[in-house]
Every structure is written in C-alpha cells, then in structure tokens.
C-alpha cells in the first residue's frame, strides 16, 4: 500500500515527535489531561488495527472483538489482585488465556460464515459482557468495575505526575502492535488472509484449509487485543464492564471505516481520531457558540455520537475507503496525471 520508501521515515518522524512532545517544555501535550486522552486514543488506534486484521484483511465481520479486549483487561487485573502475580507475568498470562478463549469461541463460530458468523460472535461477546457485569464467580466486581491494586504496579505508572509514562507505554504498545500487524499481513499467512477475503473458494481449491487460516487470524487479533486490554487496565487504573460491551466492537468498526480498512495506518488514524473526538467534542461544545443556538440544533450537536454518526454515514455512502482510501485515490490521480 503506502510505499515503504516514503512511509518509513514519515511514520518514524511522527512517532518520535509524539514521544518527545510531553517532555519538550510547554505545549498542549505536556498537560496530564491531554496525555491521558492521547494514551487512551493510542490504545484504541492499536485496537482498531487488530480489528482491521479481522475485518479488513481477512474479511471476517466479528461483533465480539470487545470480548478479547476485556478478557485481557480483566484476567490481568484478577491475576495481579487475587493471585499476587507480577504485572508483566499477569499480562503474559492474560494473553495466553485470551488466545485459548479465542481459539475455543472462534473455532465454534467459524463453523458458520457471513452474517451468521457476526451473530454468533455477537452472542459470545454478550455472554462475556454478562459474565463481567453480573459478576458470576465473584471475580469481576460487577458494574462497579475492577480497580487494579496500585501497590503491585511499578511506581512510575502511578499518580497524575507520571501520566507521561502511561502515555509512553500506550505509544509503545501502539508501535509494537503496528509492527506485529505489519509482519503478520506481509507474511505468507497474511497473503492467505487477504486471499480468503477476496475469494475463499479459490483458496480451498489451492489445497489450503480456509478455516484454519481464519482461526489463525482470529486468535492472533484476539491475542493482540488482550495485550491492549491489559495496557488499558494500567492506563485507566481499573477494568469496567463497558469495555466488554458490544458498543466497543461497533466503535471499532466505525474507527476502521472512518480511517479506511486494509491500509494499517488508516485503522490506527481512525481509532485515534474517533477516540479523541468522542472525548473532546464534549469539551469543545461547552461554553461556545453552540450554547447560543436553539436547543433543537445545539442539543444534538453537543453529542459526539451525532457528529461521528453523520460523518460515518457520509463516508459509507460517498467515500468508501475512508481517510486512507481518499488519500490513495488522490495520490493515484496525481501520479497518473501526466499519462
């Protein structure tokens, strides 16, 4: 997609600038508030990328991706709090558990395909949400959320003054997931994923087992989602049932469509934009011109979901491919101008 030659320096430059800004004197990113917002946004960018691996690259429309994100989050918290496990080991344990869970649920769901697959994954996701929210087994603390014991985390992750380290942690995880996704999609298995999306019948005629590769894609993206969930636990300080809700998966779908599927950076950009907009549109609308508008216009405009939903509808109808799709179309036009 984006040519390696041009994109590598650009992406590295952007990452380095984001990594330095919190430490470089007085700028918006040196404030803890925006650092926290951006840390969450980076993690949603990474999560959107893992969803893109399923939806964009492999062509699997799953509505249960939040399950694996929440599983990574909650298993880490439970291992740290209840079993006194070192936090790095707990994260590894959570990734392992989530991969197993994904192999089981994904294996069952992949007996179906298309919309039915979407529904089965939605059902598994809902089951996960019920388990977390109703506190079956007494591990998850139900609707109140599950705070991670701060004494068991390193000191530099605790407290408002240390938000910049959480920010760096989130950025680091995003970079790691980005390279992992890059490696996966450019590997030979990644080629098979893309082939499955484009023509499944042909893949099986070539002698490859489609379900085995779909399951591989499903488990890989779930394992990465678990890592992101564990990081989100450290960044936000506690697990919450809302991370297991179907809303999260739908938000991921919006992020990928917004940024554009199958381009990697599109999903990341979409995730970051969506996350920042949905937290910051509230602040922007407060105390500005919106308040002077009549309520029947100003009220909905103050809701981030209204603006995001409208943008989303317009993108699906008139600009499929999202931001990255538009970029590539413009670039293609530019490069072919002389011909």
């Amino acid at each position: 997609m984006l040519r390696w030659k041009y994109s590598r320096p650009l992406l590295i430059a952007i990452t380095v600038i984001f990594a330095i800004l919190p430490f470089a004197g007085d700028n918006p990113l040196s404030k803890a508030g925006l650092q926290q917002t951006m840390a969450v946004a980076f993690l949603f960018g990474a999560l959107a990328l893992t969803y893109d691996l399923l939806f964009g690259f492999t062509g699997l429309l799953s509505f249960g991706h939040a399950l694996y994100f929440a599983s990574g989050m909650y298993v880490t918290a439970i291992l740290i709090n209840d079993f006194n496990v070192h936090f790095l080991l707990a994260i590894v344990g959570a990734i392992f558990f989530t991969s197993l869970l994904a192999a089981l649920t994904g294996g069952a769901a992949l007996r179906t395909s298309g919309i039915t697959f979407a529904m089965v994954t939605l059902a598994f996701g809902q089951a996960g949400h019920v388990v977390v929210a109703r506190d079956f087994g007494g591990f998850t603390n139900g609707d109140d959320g599950l705070p991670v014991n701060p004494d068991r985390l390193p000191d530099f992750f605790i407290g408002v003054v240390n938000t910049k380290y959480l920010y760096l942690l989130a950025l680091g995880v995003l970079v790691f997931i980005y390279f992992a996704a890059w490696w996966i999609t450019e590997s030979s298995a990644g080629r098979v994923f893309a082939a499955l999306r484009d023509n499944e019948q042909r893949v099986s005629v070539l002698g490859l087992n489609p379900n085995r590769f779909k399951l591989l894609s499903f488990v890989l993206s779930a394992a990465m989602a678990a890592l992101i969930g564990a990081t989100m636990l450290i960044v936000s300080g506690s697990g919450s049932p809302r991370y297991a809700a179907a809303d999260i998966t739908i938000a991921l779908l919006l992020m990928v469509i917004l940024g554009g599927p199958i381009t990697r950076w599109g999903a990341v950009l979409g995730g970051i934009l969506y996350s920042v907009l949905s937290t910051r549109l509230n602040f922007i609308s407060e105390g500005t011109a919106l308040n002077s508008l009549p309520r029947f216009i100003g009220g909905p405009l103050a809701e981030p979901a209204f603006t995001l939903g409208l943008i989303f509808i317009l993108i699906v109808m008139f600009a499929p491919g999202g931001i990255s799709g538009a970029y590539y179309r413009a670039r293609f036009k530019y490069l072919n101008k002389g011909k």
Partner: peptide, 9 residues
C-alpha cells in the same frame, strides 16, 4: 454499516 450510523445519529 450505514444503519449503524443511523442508529448512532
């Protein structure tokens, strides 16, 4: 997807 958008709006 577009119906998801409509429901949000």
């Amino acid at each position: 997807l577009v119906t998801v958008g409509v429901s949000l709006v």
